Simulated scan of single mutants.
Amino acid sequence: MRPAEIERISVRQAVDRYVELVRAKTVTGQFSPATAEVYCRDVQTFAELAGPERVLDDLDGADLDAVLLAFARRPDGRRRRDARAEEAARPGRASQSAASQARFRRSLSVFFRHAVTAGWVQLDPMRAVTVSARDRGGLRAERRALTAEQAGGLLAAAQRMAASPSTARRRDQRTELRDALVVVLLTTVGPRVSELTRANVEDFFVNDGERYWRIFGKGGRTRDVPLPRPVAALLDAYLAEGRPLLDRGVEPKALLLSWRGRRLARGDVQAVIDRVLARVEPSRRRAVTPHGLRHTTATHLLAAATDMDAVRRVLGHSDLSTLSRYRDELPGELEAAMRIHPLLHERRR
């Protein structure tokens, strides 16, 4: 139920209250810490772009259009410096990806729906937004999943990295086995990046000769995912040879450690992927994010006619409708499907 009167608070005050509410919801399990972090970061960016001292209820659709445009041009801090410099040299082009822009817009929509209920605004200004994707830089959501050739090149590079001698001067800074394991797990098992960095050594176990990973996912749900044998072998090599070099006794449970001996941070995972990508031959190389590798897992399992419910359980989705968003088109898959059309081939006797 909405309050009878509108409380004319500043953008900064509204954002601070909202952030406090979102963080409180992580305690009750309504939001995962990763989801809460994204919402909080986006609304704090909104306050910076909209003007923290402005009255929230004074913002209209034109103001939100300006915020969306400003966010689209905002440099992406996750990208390498050379990439940001190249973007800066192209004025008028969007720096944020289409996925980041869509996520930011969703975060603002959720924020303003709460603002209406809380009595901070009379009307939701997001309903009056008119700026289009073309205005924001013409970006369209691209296929996130790697093709079989691209994914094969990435996995081959990871295996070569695991097998090659380290170039690090200090023995305790050798991370090749760890980097290879990160990329192989992301590409073949498709965990969320938060699930990967939260993983502990004790989460991996053997049952009836099969290696499993107990993944602690969203909403307190867990799933036991069997690891393919090459992945299990790489995991064992890392635990026996790679992790002991990084272990400083600071994080005795964490699976993935930085060279300082602390749990690998979510923000470090993209840098790990980029290091492995640098070893992929250029003809098979394509930039990809951790979430893009999750799409890759889903897409190729489904393309191989794996049962949809099994893929859902591997990825940790609560229902099949979510899985459909992770299925990207692959080059040549329609042609392959029509070549083996079941109605045009004689039945085997």
Rank of each mutant, 00 (worst) to 15 (best):
148 A>V: 15
268 D>E: 13
337 A>C: 09
183 V>L: 07
91 P>S: 03
55 V>W: 00
231 V>W: 11
224 D>S: 12
49 L>R: 04
151 A>N: 03
64 L>F: 09
188 T>L: 15
312 R>G: 05
156 A>K: 12
188 T>E: 10
220 G>E: 02
83 A>H: 01
230 P>N: 09
346 E>T: 02
235 L>C: 02
296 T>I: 11
55 V>T: 07
14 A>W: 01
138 G>I: 12
166 S>C: 13
138 G>A: 08
248 R>Y: 05
55 V>E: 13
19 V>I: 02
238 Y>W: 09
144 R>L: 14
136 R>Q: 15
130 T>E: 14
84 R>Y: 01
225 V>A: 10
199 A>N: 03
169 R>I: 12
69 L>D: 02
315 L>C: 08
217 G>T: 09
68 L>Q: 07
225 V>L: 10
126 M>W: 11
188 T>N: 02
218 K>Y: 05
224 D>G: 05
2 R>C: 01
55 V>Q: 04
263 R>L: 07
207 N>P: 00
346 E>Y: 00
57 D>Q: 14
60 D>P: 05
24 A>L: 13
77 G>L: 11
72 A>P: 03
344 L>H: 13
193 V>Y: 03
237 A>V: 00
57 D>F: 09
239 L>G: 04
310 A>C: 01
262 R>G: 03
266 R>W: 02
140 R>W: 09
326 Y>N: 10
323 L>G: 01
120 W>R: 02
60 D>F: 12
299 T>L: 04
199 A>D: 06
283 S>C: 05
242 G>F: 02
134 R>E: 14
97 S>F: 02
324 S>H: 10
193 V>Q: 11
269 V>P: 08
181 L>P: 14
259 W>C: 03
349 R>M: 05
100 S>Y: 04
5 E>S: 13
114 H>E: 11
349 R>G: 14
47 A>R: 02
201 V>M: 08
242 G>Q: 03
111 F>S: 06
4 A>L: 15
21 L>G: 03
105 R>I: 06
27 V>T: 13
324 S>V: 15
140 R>D: 12
263 R>C: 11
164 S>C: 14
316 G>R: 11
108 L>Y: 03
346 E>D: 07
202 E>A: 15
131 V>H: 07
138 G>H: 08
164 S>E: 15
40 C>F: 00
330 L>Y: 13
282 P>W: 04
211 R>N: 00
126 M>T: 15
210 E>R: 14
2 R>H: 11
97 S>R: 06
24 A>Q: 14
51 G>W: 07
261 G>Y: 00
314 V>E: 07
273 I>N: 06
131 V>N: 06
311 V>P: 09
117 T>N: 11
244 P>I: 03
305 A>R: 13
181 L>I: 13
289 T>D: 12
161 M>H: 11
182 V>N: 11
261 G>Q: 01
9 I>T: 00
231 V>A: 15
88 A>D: 13
71 F>I: 06
236 D>C: 04
65 D>E: 10
142 E>H: 14
294 R>F: 13
319 D>R: 06
106 R>M: 06
48 E>K: 14
83 A>G: 00
75 P>Q: 04
233 A>Y: 00
192 R>P: 08
331 P>E: 11
260 R>S: 06
260 R>H: 12
158 A>T: 09
162 A>T: 01
46 F>A: 05
110 V>E: 02
171 R>I: 10
277 L>F: 06
200 N>E: 15
265 A>S: 15
245 L>E: 04
